[in-house]
Write a protein that binds this DNA or RNA. Sequence first.
DNA 1: GATATGATTCGATAATTCTCGAATTATGGA
DNA 2: TCCATAATTCGAGAATTATCGAATCATATC
Lengths: 99, 99
Amino acid sequence: MEEQDIIAALAALAQDSRLRVFRLLVTAGPAGLPAGQIAEELAIAPNTLSFHLSHLKSAGLASVRREGRSLIYSADYARARAVIGYLTENCCSRDPCCP
Amino acid sequence: MEEQDIIAALAALAQDSRLRVFRLLVTAGPAGLPAGQIAEELAIAPNTLSFHLSHLKSAGLASVRREGRSLIYSADYARARAVIGYLTENCCSRDPCCP
DNA sequence: GATATGATTCGATAATTCTCGAATTATGGA
DNA sequence: TCCATAATTCGAGAATTATCGAATCATATC
């Protein structure tokens, strides 16, 4: 994962609506949730939600599949975990301290 | 840690210069680095760096202490770790899946 | 006190981001 | 085919953010 990917993931999550969407998707697990239900639960206008979902998707934090008329979004939280790994990489490499 | 604190931390890290600063500070560990040295190593103008350091500081991701004329910054990466905890909290609570 | 160094603050500009209304695409059923 | 539902795309406006030059503040030394 490149620096730009990390920044995209952080930026995607650093916004109120998207953070709430991501956390909602995390509670849903692999089953995911249809866009309409997300919009309803979080009281976000459908078009605005689309904007945010596409952000999460292009940051690799969510994926979509279609079921009939519905588009089901689910969280890729392995990627979220990868972010912190990147942040604390090389901890104290200049001045050893950590176990 | 409140949602707004999480967003502040994510936003602070979701920017090229600040992400590089934070990672540099992580390598330095508790010893930290003076602002001037950070500016030099990352080739960021001192005033621009101040702007970014104050962001990291107010997001709780860095702390400062003075040593003579120098201000020494160091990373609070416990807070960075807290962020991911928040992100994956309540994983699959609607549709159990995780161990 | 005067001077130099390390760093921050201020003000302005350029760029990015969020939100909303209107229009559009895609699927399923009558 | 026609209609309804689910969701996205487009375009514009308001707000936020990043960067830079100039000026200022704080500490140490002469």
